[in-house]
Design a protein around this nucleic acid. Structure first.
Length: 434
RNA sequence: GGAAGGGUGUCCGAGUGGUCGAAGGAAACGGUCUUGAAAACCGUCGUGCCGGCAACGGUACCGUGGGUUCGAAUCCCACCCCUUCCGCCA
């Protein structure tokens, strides 16, 4: 949610930028409701003061029947006014929640993901003296991926992963955890990128994979619901998370953190669940688009001043990991239409997939400024005693399925095996090929 | 699932109808003392909203929502969450 004071002060800008992000919000109507709400609130405060004064008077001397009657009338009027205000406020909040976060100045304006801007290309695309295969061809040949039996048991977009592919997944997990918990390495990445940040390692964390509806909504990630899985229960209102971000970013809701504790950097591991609504027929082969996939996710809580640098740190970590794994990639600065409602800035890393002959998204980095924190009420108490909303950042460290596709397709050998990236060999018992 | 207890400020914790935005303690911040530090002592010390240039004033908030009352942290109802014991169980 955006700060109403900011909207009052920058009404035109908010309307413009909301439109650029693809959200049509009636800002004049919102301001009208805001003004109405404030007028009513002032009137109600006057009535409340009268009630409080009266009550203070009655406590010292017994009220007469007439005084009790006037108090009763006051209560009734107050009740009516408060009901009116509640109705106005409900409309006001509903509209306020629709206003998206404002993009930072360097976010390109665009109307679809086609207008994302390529800002960097890394790595040489591998040259093969044979026709490169897709990951599903290699996966099936090696008995690593069984979608047929998964379809029987759970339906489309599920898979059994087997054998060496599973060991590869655990090797990547261990590699990433070792990397991000290494404070010296984090320091090195910060220094190399000229960031002004504390060298603090990431804390590994296993979050819940279910989330309460109210918290999901506060994170501003409940919509579109068609892409979420709801869990039916007698008295639970739980959803399956679509990303570890959902339960990581909300963990400090309603808390005021001491500034000395920041930044809080987490590396979470969890399964993610997505209905993939509206993707019928898209990416049906292989394991690129699944209803269920595992992911290592970074989440950072920071002061407002360091939020943007933390965002850049997360992108730098993504690059470091891809380079260590030797997967060619490029980076897209996402345009206004593609960054997402709570985002101020967003970047995608896309891996080169020789089997498909194109780049496909493997990572995303989202900078939310204080937009999520405002509704979650996650705040920081500064050294001088003032209270501010924290800034939140989340970013993929590794989406296991998609990164494994990158490894399989880029490192495939003539005889249909896969070369293990140097960085992972020690986690696979020294194996150089699977 | 059964039984009991409980949710109060950054934290711990008192408070069963008006004198309570809330005792006391801790932490934090400022100061005195000290060569310095610790200790001791003094002081400051919740958040949101509305109005105001500001000092400040008003109002709301004691898990959430409703109710009773002239008046609710305190009484009633519902819900959420936590703890303990029993049952079941990876």
């Amino acid at each position: 949610m955006l700060d109403i004071q900011f909207i009052r002060d920058h009404a035109d800008e908010v309307a413009d930028k909301s439109r650029q992000k693809g959200y049509e919000v009636d800002i004049p109507r919102l301001l009208e409701l805001d003004a109405e709400r404030r007028t009513r609130l002032t009137q109600i405060d006057v009535l409340r003061k009268r009630r409080n004064d009266q009550a203070a008077e009655f406590k010292s001397q017994k009220p007469s029947p007439e005084q009790i009657e006037s108090g009763r009338q006051l209560k009734q009027e107050l009740g009516e006014r408060e009901d009116e205000l509640a109705r106005i406020e409900a409309d006001y909040i509903q509209l306020l929640k629709k206003v998206p976060n404002m993009p930072t100045d360097d976010v390109p304006v665009g109307t679809s993901e086609d207008e994302n801007v390529e800002v960097k290309v890394w790595g040489d695309k591998p040259q093969f003296d044979f026709e490169p295969k897709s990951h599903w061809e290699i996966g099936e040949a090696n008995d690593w991926i069984d979608k047929g039996r998964a379809a029987k048991v759970t339906g489309a977009r599920f898979a059994y992963l087997k054998g060496s592919l599973v060991q590869l997944q655990f090797a990547i997990i261990q590699f990433v955890l070792d990397t991000l918990t290494d404070q010296e390495l984090v320091q090195k990445i910060i220094d190399e990128n000229g960031l002004h940040l504390l060298a603090k390692a990431f804390t590994p964390i296993l979050p819940p994979v279910m989330i309460r509806e109210d918290v999901y909504d506060q994170m501003d990630r409940l919509e579109p619901r068609e892409d979420r899985y709801h869990i039916d229960g007698d008295d639970d209102n739980l959803w399956l998370i679509g990303s570890a971000e959902h339960t990581l970013g909300s963990m400090y809701a309603d808390e005021i953190l001491p500034e000395a504790d920041l930044p809080l950097r987490y590396i979470g591991y969890s399964t993610s669940f997505r209905q993939e609504a509206g993707t019928y027929g898209k990416d049906n082969e292989g394991i690129l688009r699944m209803h269920q996939f595992d992911k290592l996710e970074m989440e950072v809580f920071s002061t407002p001043e360091t939020g943007l640098d933390e965002h850049k740190l997360l992108i730098a970590v993504q690059e470091y990991l891809m380079q260590q794994l030797g997967i060619p990639y490029h980076i897209l600065l996402k345009c206004t239409a593609d960054i997402g409602k709570p985002n101020a800035r967003g970047v995608d890393v896309e891996a080169w997939l020789p089997g498909q002959g194109k780049y496909r998204e493997t990572h995303t980095a989202d900078y939310m400024t204080d937009y999520q924190a405002r509704r979650l009420k996650t705040r920081v108490k500064r050294g001088d005693g003032t209270i501010d909303l924290v800034h939140t950042n989340d970013a993929t460290a590794v989406a296991l399925g998609r990164v494994m596709i990158g490894i399989i397709e880029n490192n495939q050998t003539t005889d249909g095996h896969v070369r293990v990236p140097d960085a992972l060999q020690k986690y696979l018992g020294g194996k150089t090929e699977i």
